[in-house]
């Protein structure tokens, strides 16, 4: 897969960080309007593709984490979230589980159970195989 190339270099990282900051502000305002689903959608969109820059990845994760933790009604969320977001959401859930942080893991496991019920094991496989979206 190394041949696919196109990894973002450090000078590009600044642009990504700016985009993430912008995304963060948008999510905050959506959360203030109690639109957690819209916030999560915004968070899942435009994850930095093919970046190796850890700073970008963690900045992006903080934003997505904020949106994931704001979810209260998991069933309601999944029924209003389009199926195209399932795979990338699953990938972020595994990122959340890897943090080992108790409240994060609790929340991720809760969503994981419902998401697996809805999207199946195929969704987990796709999130494992995904090499385009860096989370």
């Amino acid at each position: 897969m190394a041949a696919t190339g196109g990894f973002v270099e450090t000078d590009n990282a600044e642009a990504i960080i700016t985009r993430i900051e912008h995304k963060s502000r948008k999510i905050e305002s959506l959360l203030k309007q109690s639109k957690p689903v819209e916030a999560l959608k915004t968070a899942l969109e435009g994850s930095p593709p093919m970046t190796r820059d850890e700073r970008c990845k963690s900045a992006n994760w903080i934003v997505v984490h904020r949106a994931i933790m704001a979810i209260k009604d998991v069933d309601g969320l999944l029924s209003s979230l389009d199926a195209e977001y399932y795979d990338i959401l699953m990938k972020y859930l595994y990122r959340g589980l890897s943090t080992g942080d108790r409240p994060t893991c609790d929340q991720c496991l809760r969503i994981h159970e419902k998401l697996t019920e809805r999207a199946g094991l195929g969704c987990i496989l796709r999130s494992l195989a995904d090499t385009v979206n860096a989370v």
Binding site: A119, G120, G122, C123
Partner: peptide, 28 residues
């Protein structure tokens, strides 16, 4: 098929192929 639980359909095999990706919920 792909090992990521996807199946791919390609029409007009030639210079400008038309591809469809279908994801499914079960094992590959």
């Amino acid at each position: 098929v792909g090992h990521n639980s996807m199946i791919y359909f390609v029409d007009d095999v030639g210079p400008s192929p038309l591809a469809q990706n279908v994801a499914f919920r079960d094992l590959p």
